[in-house]
Design a protein around this nucleic acid. Structure first.
Lengths: 354, 354
DNA sequence: TTTATTTATGCAATCGTTCCCGGTTTTTAG
DNA sequence: CTAAAAACCGGGAACGATTGCATAAATAAA
């Protein structure tokens, strides 16, 4: 008969009840024996544990979740996992999460506000215990997050953090990153430096612009707002970068260098220069924020501002798990800022005098 | 009092019981009203549905899972999400999964057999309804998968499929990809073509080697086994690629072209040539399997064999969900092979005569 | 020997939801 | 006007596990 069933039925897991029945014990005794309770005699324990092992018993996590009111899974919302920064950050998140017995559910917003909300509803409905999020570049209205946060739901922002919301936040020193990049270009003789910026809604964009602005000021270079172009979708579609760079290069005081302030922006910027036959750095120099592993292999090799993505992920998940496992609601929130790293290669070089 | 609790307590979701109590109905009636049962009067339905909406009721998926014995989540095991091929495949998987109400739990093996097993145990213990897997390059022994499969657990292999296991499989025509790549190099005048191959344990490696072999034979070029080097970890660590290429270039009939048979292998191969001051394609030509989005920006621009990663992911998840939702166990398994795409750029060019 | 205490186990409630049974009304048919 | 049939709703078991409480037997103390 078991043969008959094995053909027609799907896999049925063995439960504590099966063990109890087989051993002539109650489910409570079996449960306690398995959890090594002091109330159970050593002999009973031995019998139960051995039998459980033999039939390969595994506790049903769903039943546990229902009982304990926690799923031991956390949600991650990022714009794109194909983005090197985020895949590295996710690696960092996973490295800690798995150790602590949590699993992660990843959702992608693809830089769309609408999809971000959809993903959030979805994750919330899957009863995650907490959320790690780097908001989409379209996101202005934060009601969807504020709602959850007000009800005490643990949320940690990483990379693209938001103001107006009192939570743990982990990011990089964007101001410094942009300041250093700008200074490097200035050091190499560039005076007209344009900025290819990400979405205006993002705090990281504002910080990067501020760093760029301050570096110019500190080097007594006049700031010119027309040297900045914002890309709402952070360079996700090439068209947007093409338009931005087109108008930047058409500027009356044409830039001799460009700072690209995001991963996709950086590569698409290089692609644009290549398509226009502009030689980097001779015709135009550039430096960009990027976490790509092969910026050294690009033509020319790219000078980049690199973010400690893996560490950001680790710090973020640690804060989140700490908050989840707190008995009392968290009232003191941390904002952790990690330093960026500048790697100078060919693309940011001096303008060659011909 | 509710104020008192709101400060000290964590967020408690509203349940069907709350609705029942508030409306003076039984939980069964509420449940039925919410599911639009014919047994409930339109007025009652209206009251229940409106109240549920008002207090933002969401059914508890964990309770549902317990009842229905399914979690509506599927597991994915890949070597690395930072790998372009896999992040694209995952995008394809997600696009379908979310539509059909499944969520995905992603785990990375980092090309380690041990971590693959750990991940599998972990996912299985999280009660996933099915598994999508691309095995690690170390994986030879398949017992961990055979066990699950024998008990009727739905598994679909994608990209790195295995033999000896009767399941759905989705991949690319690796034979043709390698055959075309080899032929292209031959067409460009290369006679000594080396192959930088992935793990010997992987079927895709065998197929690619076979395609390479056949192309040589068809063009009346003697096959030389010493022109092939296998990289157990598929180029994950640079050292392994360095060693392989070192011995390949030290060969008595030194290759004038190399085929790299995996994403990481391709980029690390280029990195090696660059570090050795070898000019591509003049000193040595190359073509590689790669799904990177910026192979056109590399120096030189790379000729590649590209796999339809997104589509592979979509087909794989569709097969998996079909199998999960089948009432009867699946007995007929499909093997779907998608065509690769060859993109010719600079790196595979002819050897320049100086 | 009687009472108190320890030891070992079982019962039943709980988590949130569904659904099989009933049971009561109200409507329809005869 | 009565019987049958809808129409509508509630009770309670079930899913798998944990745990407070009760209870039984065995032992220790008086």
């Amino acid at each position: 008969m078991s043969h008959f069933f094995s053909f027609f039925m799907k896999y049925e897991a063995v439960t504590i009840k099966d063990i109890a029945k087989a051993l002539g014990l109650s489910t409570s005794t079996v449960s306690r024996a398995l959890r090594d309770s002091y109330e159970i005699s050593p002999e009973t324990k031995k019998i139960v544990i051995e039998y459980a092992q033999q039939i390969n018993y595994r506790p049903n996590p769903i039943a546990l979740s229902l009982k304990e009111k926690r799923s031991r899974s956390i949600g991650i919302i990022v714009c794109e996992i194909a983005n090197s920064f985020f895949s590295q950050a996710i690696n960092g998140i996973e490295s800690i999460a798995y150790d602590k017995g949590y699993n992660v559910i990843i959702a992608q917003s693809h830089e769309s506000y609408e999809r971000e909300i959809l993903n959030l509803q979805y994750l919330a409905s899957r009863s995650i215990d907490g959320l790690l999020i780097s908001v989409s570049s379209e996101t202005q209205n934060l009601d969807h997050l504020i709602n959850l946060h007000k009800r005490g739901f643990p949320i940690v922002f990483f990379d693209r953090v938001v103001e107006n919301l009192d939570t743990h936040k982990v990011g990089v020193d964007n101001y410094k990153g942009a300041y250093d990049a700008t200074s490097e270009l200035i050091k190499n003789g560039h005076r007209n430096i344009a900025m290819l910026a990400g979405s205006e809604f993002l705090s990281i964009t504002k910080e990067r612009v501020a760093g760029y602005h301050q570096a110019l000021t500190d080097h007594k270079i006049a700031f010119d707002a027309s040297q900045i172009e914002y890309c709402l979708h952070g360079g996700m579609n090439y068209q947007e970068v093409e338009n931005a760079l087109g108008s930047l290069l058409a500027n009356k005081n044409k830039p001799s260098a460009v700072i690209a302030s995001a991963d996709k922006l950086t590569t698409n910027c290089l692609r644009y220069f290549k398509s226009k036959g502009l030689e980097v750095p001779n015709d135009i120099a550039m430096i960009g924020f990027s976490n790509l592993d092969l910026t050294d292999l690009l033509s020319p090799s790219l000078s980049v501002i690199r973010q400690p993505a893996y560490e950001i992920g680790q710090v973020a998940i640690e804060l989140l798990i700490k908050q989840i496992e707190n008995k009392r609601p968290t009232t003191e929130f941390e904002k952790i800022i990690l330093p960026p790293q500048m790697i100078i290669r060919e693309s940011s070089g001096a303008k060659k005098v011909r």
